[in-house]
Amino acid sequence: MNSSQLLGVSTLGFLLASMLYIGALIFRAKTVSLVASILTLLTFLVLTGGIGLRWYESYQMGFGHAPLSNMYESLVFFAWSIVIFYLVLEFKFKNRILGAFAIPFAFVSMAYASFAKGINQEIAPLIPALQSNWLIAHVMTCFIGYAAFAVACGLGIMYLLKRDGKKEKTTGLIGTLPALKIIDDLIHKTIIFGFLWLSVGIITGAIWANSAWGTYWSWDPKETWSLITWFVYAATLHARFTRGWTGKRIAWLAIIGFVSVIFTYFGVNFLLAGLHSYGSS
């Protein structure tokens, strides 16, 4: 057995778990959601094993390094972070409905890593600039933050679904979602958690840049977008702490913030890089 088989199984596992969570939401079936949770936990263990095995395989190949060195590996870690964050949330708040709004993100991340064009799945040795423990710290902390923001975005969507004008929908499918007040509080807590990790992520990234190139900040598009994301969430926290914004507006900001996260990660690599290469060719 090798790591890519385990990672493939995990992708399937998350697809199935997503469908079960959504099914449980639609048909209001408690047992189904329990099965979804168990499946998620099992898949999470397989995924953890897969990541560990990939790590081990890189040592077998003679240039061992933590599996956090390229787009593929970071997407897998992103999925891993979303799932562990979600599982803790589920355990803490004893609510399985959240799964329908969180696990699909993990599945999409895994599926994108496995099937998108231009994503190299090979275990490759590290070029000199990437040989740094600060880089490992940077990738891990950023992605823990991103995972929290993904869940916050899912919660934001949930909030907007549940909201009915000025009232709360209490009937039908949507009625089974947690009370608006609870979702609102969860969004806020999740953003706080993400903000802390994003801050650590930006700082460790700056330290890495300084040790590799002698510049802790150079306003390159990736750095700048991570700062934009940081500004968006800082503004969100201020709006709430000091201006008392809650509910719909915070839910929208949780979604906008996550769009910024996605852009930091993909947009900069694909869209802006493309733009730049047009410009220079």
Binding site: T224, W225, I228, A235, L272
Partner: peptide, 12 residues
């Protein structure tokens, strides 16, 4: 904060 976020995009 919102202005910084939006204007920073230009340079990217």
């Amino acid at each position: 904060l919102f202005m910084l976020a939006i204007l920073s995009i230009i340079g990217t």
